[in-house]
């Protein structure tokens, strides 16, 4: 082509390398994580033990799947307030269904696989409800998922009569078995987490997720099936919440209607995503950020108990942490605008 629009382009001045690293949320989080671990270990040297790291990995696993679910949803420009109660309702439903198998002494592996499937199905239904409300009835995600949250929390209470459902001590013992600080349960969760990261950042599906959250019109105009994608994202989030319900069933050997509800697990998960550097307006977020965000939250809340801090302070510290992360993010965004 003979002409050129070179004139349209003036070179953007590059940021200094140092500034880029220091304002990189993941880098900062990594430093914070290491500092926290060192701090807790300095207060109580027992922190540096396989048993404690096993505890940390386990608690991390209870958070990371719903945090990654939120990452997908938030990157796509939405929010999912339902993940906590979806975990609860999945857990009590699965616990009820598989208890006859437990009573009949069926092989534990079979029981847990059936339970996992049940949780995934219930989770998918919950996510499907959110997706339906958003795509077919045009509710904003905040309201739609709040509806799903209430339905899930209510159903969990009704199904369980407010009491733990089922009892499977074999599951508890299995949840504690593994190699070194990594239990089998944790290993499975970590594999799922890695797959989610790969899909988010390396595949077409993940690319569409960012595109939709960044500019939904642009995504639609580029031929992306936005509605179908959003449905799939909320269903995925539901499934991950369901799996989290199964995780807690396995860990405590029963399903409880309070799991993920009374501790506002949905907000903790969103906090992990925000700490990880994602933007609540969509289009921005990183798997590694969420992983580190969830790790920092886990280490803080466990570590404070570990060094015997009064429970009321723990909430204050976690709140402060989120505030710092939000400030860091706005600083980073502003620094990026430098021409």
């Amino acid at each position: 082509m003979s002409t050129s629009v070179d004139a349209l382009v003036t070179t953007v001045k590059s940021q200094s390398r140092v500034r880029r690293v220091v304002t990189n949320q993941q880098f900062v989080l990594f430093v914070v994580l290491i500092a926290l671990i060192l701090f807790f270990a300095s207060r109580n040297s027992l922190f540096f033990r396989v048993g404690e790291f096993s505890n940390l990995f386990t608690d991390f696993s209870g958070l990371v799947l719903i945090a990654l679910a939120e990452t997908y949803v938030i990157v796509a420009g939405g929010i999912d307030l339902a993940v906590g109660s979806t975990a609860a309702v999945s857990g009590v439903v699965a616990a009820g269904w598989i208890q006859p198998l437990v009573n009949h002494g069926v092989n534990q592996a079979v029981i847990l696989l059936v339970g996992t499937l049940a949780c995934a199905v219930v989770g998918a239904l919950a996510g499907g409800l959110s997706a339906l409300l958003i795509t077919a009835f045009d509710l904003v995600p905040f309201v739609a998922t709040l509806v799903t949250y209430s339905v899930g929390a209510g159903l969990a209470l009704v199904i369980s009569h407010g009491a733990p459902v089922g009892y499977n001590p074999g599951a508890i013992y299995w949840s504690a078995s593994g190699i070194g600080m990594i239990t089998w349960l944790v290993a499975i969760v970590l594999v799922v987490a890695v797959v989610l990261g790969v899909v988010l950042h390396l595949t077409v599906y993940g690319r569409y997720n960012f595109a939709i959250g960044s500019n939904e019109f642009a995504a639609r105009a580029a031929g992306i099936a936005v509605r179908r994608h959003l449905i799939s994202v909320y269903v995925l989030a539901g499934v991950l919440a369901g799996l989290t319900g199964m995780f807690f069933y396995i860990r405590s050997g029963s399903g409880a209607a309070t799991t993920g509800v009374t501790n506002s697990a949905n907000l903790v998960a969103i906090a992990a995503v925000v700490i990880g550097g994602a933007s609540l307006t969509g289009g921005v977020g990183r798997w590694a950020g969420t992983m580190l965000g969830a790790a920092v939250l886990t280490v803080v809340s466990d570590g404070l108990i570990f060094i015997n801090v009064p429970p009321t302070w723990i909430q204050v510290v976690v709140g402060a942490l989120i505030a710092v992360a939000a400030l860091l993010q706005s600083f980073r965004r502003r620094s990026r605008r430098v021409p």
Partner: peptide
């Protein structure tokens, strides 16, 4: 080319050029 931007601002230039036909 749409009047209201048809680009996804958070994606790279390359990703935008190939948006929908990765």
């Amino acid at each position: 080319l749409y009047q209201d931007s048809g680009l996804a601002p958070d994606l790279s230039i390359g990703s935008n050029i190939f948006l929908g036909r990765e």
